[in-house]
Simulated assay, not measured.
Amino acid sequence: MAGASVASELAGTYRVLLAEREGQPGYHTTGRSAALFSETYGPPQIRALSRASRAFFDGPPTGFAAAPILSPRGVLTVARPDQIEALERELATFPVGEKIRRVSPAEASALMPLMRDGYVAGAIHDTSARDIDVHALHQGYLRQFRAAGGRLETGAEILGIERDGATWRIRTSNLEIRAAIVVNAAGAWADEIGVMAGANRIGLVPKRRTALIIAAPDGVQIGPWPMVVDVDEEFYLKPDAGRFLISPADETPSAPCDAQPEELDVAICIDRIEKAFDFPVQRVENKWAGLRSFVADKTPVAGFEPGLPGFFWLAGQGGYGIQTAPALSRFAAALVAGKNPPADIIDEGVIPTALSPARFRA
């Protein structure tokens, strides 16, 4: 998503080649997302980027997608009796109002009837959170990219990057590229690409997250129910096309790879879900894992590498890269073009120095 979105934003101004290592775009984390838009999820700069992305999601460019990208969902953040203090801390970070409010255990059970009796001691209901059609968003950016003259090369694993005079020479497994600017949007591999180009690492740590699709109880209509998230992020459960998407919300450090689910994480996930919800997990229909990549402050990295002309970082989106893509791609494209970031993004509280790789280079 990071590469497709910024390439789409740049293609109207520059000749842009999008080099994709895999046989298709979005093979790794983009295609494995829980796909929720929430302005209250993540650290402050993520929330600001999410707020700045809302207008795009609500009104994408004409022809960008055949149907709305967002659809109603809502999120119920729940706490056990031993987690009430954590719930209070979480509530203090929310802009409480008509769309976000604390609810009683009885109200939480009414919103999610499958909650186990006595499990919930308190909860927060956010009705503003919405599902994201990730496929439509990703394909919209790729379609917009191609329409602007952009070129996509799949199967183009980066084998070498070196400065050659005033340009970069990039060798891939199937072609050689010369470019004035390299945008490093390589996800879990971004630090490896940076080192290859002569940059210092930004301390990127890919973390594996496991997800499962399970059948809903027979005869239960789950469509309008909210996503349920444990206040300490020990699990989440989300209605998904008549089934449930569940996760133990694991964050296991990993080398960059095609992540696969571990059986222990699958077992932990099922155990946590069965303790919180009053139904047995009888059948796992699908399971997968993805890598969510973070730097130490869990804030994305967007900016030119100091002392390395034309090398631009766009990395470290963590688990927030889908919902922040509209604003972060516009922000990055402006910096690549040597312009000031868009005013509407800055007005939402995005601080360029907080995203810059220079913050690691003291």
Results as ranks from 00 to 15, higher is better:
A65G: 01
L264H: 14
E234Q: 15
P113G: 15
G349E: 10
I170Y: 01
L175P: 05
N340Q: 13
W225I: 10
I273F: 06
H135I: 15
F331R: 00
A166Y: 00
H28A: 14
G242Y: 10
V75K: 11
R80S: 13
M196H: 06
D131K: 12
L76E: 09
G290P: 08
V103S: 04
A259T: 10
F56M: 06
R201D: 09
R178E: 15
A343Y: 01
P44G: 00
A255L: 13
M112W: 11
A67R: 11
R171G: 08
R102E: 14
L70S: 01
Q323V: 02
I346T: 04
E153M: 08
L264I: 15
L49H: 00
V195I: 14
G150M: 04
D232L: 15
I84F: 05
L237G: 09
E192H: 10
A179W: 11
A65E: 02
F94N: 01
M1Q: 04
A86P: 02
G118M: 11
S5T: 10
G149V: 01
P226F: 05
T127F: 04
L264S: 13
M112K: 13
G3F: 04
T299H: 02
E157F: 04
R171V: 13
S109D: 12
E233I: 10
A289S: 12
A92V: 06
Y27V: 12
L245F: 14
V281L: 12
L355V: 03
R102D: 09
A325P: 05
G198K: 12
V134F: 00
T172W: 03
R330E: 04
D265I: 09
A296H: 13
V231K: 07
E162D: 11
G3I: 01
G140I: 09
I213N: 08
E348V: 01
T127G: 13
V231A: 12
A325Q: 04
P239I: 07
E305I: 02
A148H: 15
L70M: 05
A186I: 00
V78S: 05
I270P: 03
D278W: 09
H28N: 08
R146F: 00
A11V: 03
T30V: 05
L70F: 03
E157Q: 12
A332T: 00
S247E: 09
V220E: 14
A302W: 04
A123M: 07
I84L: 15
F279L: 10
T210I: 15
F56W: 08
R15L: 01
A179Y: 10
